[in-house]
């Protein structure tokens, strides 16, 4: 999961300029992301981690912070491995 966190942070870094995004900071409220970001994030997660983001996953709490994204991945990959 640490490796996942690094990958997520690297992906998100491109959207935040000089701002050092913290693990528990609300990605969507900082004002850096535009209307395309949500789809870019979905595609990144699906491609990088080979999971499918579905209707049921769409809860803002799953995408709000780096920690939330890592937790979402933990659940989805555990589900796949089960």
């Amino acid at each position: 999961m640490q490796e996942s966190k690094v990958k997520i942070k690297h992906f998100l870094a491109q959207f935040f300029g000089d701002h050092n995004l913290q693990d528990d900071e609300d990605i969507f409220s900082l004002g850096f992301v535009n209307s395309m970001f949500a789809m870019q994030l979905v595609l990144f997660i699906e491609k990088e981690f080979q999971v499918t983001i579905e209707n049921e996953d769409l809860d803002l709490d799953n995408f709000k912070t780096i920690n939330a994204l890592v937790n979402l991945l933990k659940r989805k990959t555990a589900f796949l491995e089960a």
């Binding site: 640490q2 690094v6 870094a13 491109q14 959207f15 000089d18 050092n20 693990d23």
Partner: peptide
């Protein structure tokens, strides 16, 4: 965004790893 990331890319990984 892409330009800013590429100019900072040499420093970024160390900072990221230090924060984990």
């Amino acid at each position: 965004q892409e330009y800013m990331l590429s100019t900072k890319s040499s420093k970024k990984p160390q900072k990221l790893i230090a924060r984990i």
